[in-house]
Amino acid sequence: MPQDQDPPSRVVCFGETMAQLVPDDGLPLNTAATFTVRTAGAESNVAQALAQLGIPVSWVSRLGEDALGQRITRDLAATGVDVSAVRFLPGQRTGLFLKDPGPHGSTVTYYRAGSAASTMSPADVDTALAFQPAVLHLSGVTPALSDSCAAAIRYALTACRAQGIHTSFDVNYRPALWPSPAVAANQLLDLANAADTVFVGLDEAEALWDLASATEVRRLIGQPSTLVVKDGARAAVSFGRADEPVVVPALPIVVREPVGAGDAFASGWLYGRLHDLPCTARLRLGHLMAGAALTSLGDHFTIPDTPERLLAVACASSWAGG
């Protein structure tokens, strides 16, 4: 395991975060009597996990100048995420969604159309790039929100390439946000092929592009220097430019709620990259972080151990997965 490294460089996460209303005690939405308000967003989930791991991280977005917007920034700041660049819009509202959790997936009802975050534009990307991050993390949720958000993501990928900033893109296909699967398939493929590191679930690849294996996904998404294909409870596969693919089995986990595990996996993998670890260790860190998320009812979770111990497990000679 690397020793005595300099503090890792900053990561910036760019995208919408909403308030999330979750029934207490894991009860169904239609019978629960009490609820908890939480903070949830693909990119801020990654930011919160990285902050817990000791990575300097900023989250850039727009929020309504309302109570939910204030709560989101307070919650993110409390976990160590820098929110200094968040823009508050008077007279506009922060997005909200209701979550009906279950062990095999959640039913989600969004109240986010016309949210403050849906007005994001390339100008917000310039704000993010002003941090001069080592990594800009994006997801496929953002381009589905509006035309200006889609333009922002395209601009981000182009600007980062010009400035030598590494881009991390999680496909994060959310069918309810797209006008049709065909539109999503075309746009997400173009964006993925413009990024440096791409994360995609094999189930997403099947739904979007009718692909049945990680190798088929790599043939389609051939441009990124790194492609990580997550195959649920089975394994994750990392493809580089020329090296043979690296496969690491997932850990056996009793799933309490699956949403947020993909974001957690991305945070673990990025943590390994920032520490210049080999692909095997990066994938292990992804599994360790995803495992913690799978046992939490919320999208956000507490990391399963200290960063130092997680690094030690990731770099050990043996692995408990499979």
Rank of each mutant, 00 (worst) to 15 (best):
A42P: 04
E43A: 02
S44W: 03
S44D: 04
N45S: 12
V46F: 08
A47I: 03
A49C: 13
A49F: 07
A49P: 09
A49I: 11
A49N: 11
L50H: 09
L50C: 09
L50D: 09
L50R: 05
L50M: 07
A51E: 05
A51Y: 00
Q52Y: 04
Q52I: 00
Q52V: 04
L53D: 10
L53A: 08
L53Q: 04
L53V: 06
G54H: 13
G54F: 13
P56I: 01
P56N: 09
V57A: 03
V57Q: 04
S58L: 09
W59G: 00
W59V: 00
W59L: 00
V60Q: 05
V60E: 03
V60W: 06
S61K: 12
R62H: 03
R62S: 03
R62D: 01
R62T: 01
R62A: 06
L63N: 10
D66H: 02
D66P: 04
D66I: 01
A67V: 11
L68K: 08
L68N: 13
L68G: 07
G69K: 04
G69R: 04
G69I: 03
R71V: 01
R71Q: 14
R71G: 11
I72P: 05
I72M: 05
I72K: 01
R74T: 10
R74V: 02
R74C: 04
D75R: 08
D75F: 02
D75A: 13
D75C: 03
A77P: 04
A77N: 11
A78I: 04
T79M: 10
T79Q: 14
G80M: 04
G80R: 11
G80K: 03
V81K: 00
D82P: 02
D82I: 02
V83S: 01
V83E: 01
V83W: 01
V83F: 00
V83P: 00
S84C: 10
S84L: 06
A85G: 03
A85F: 00
V86S: 12
V86A: 13
F88C: 08
L89T: 13
P90Y: 05
P90T: 05
P90F: 05
G91E: 06
G91W: 09
G91D: 10
G91R: 09
G91H: 10
Q92M: 14
Q92N: 09
R93W: 14
R93K: 14
R93N: 12
T94G: 03
T94S: 15
G95D: 05
G95F: 02
G95M: 03
L96M: 14
F97C: 07
L98T: 07
L98C: 12
D100W: 14
D100Q: 11
P101A: 08
P101S: 09
G102R: 02
G102W: 01
G102F: 04
P103L: 10
H104T: 15
H104S: 15
H104N: 15
G105C: 05
G105D: 08
S106H: 10
S106L: 09
T107C: 10
T107H: 14
T107E: 12
T107I: 10
V108N: 06
V108L: 15
V108T: 14
V108K: 05
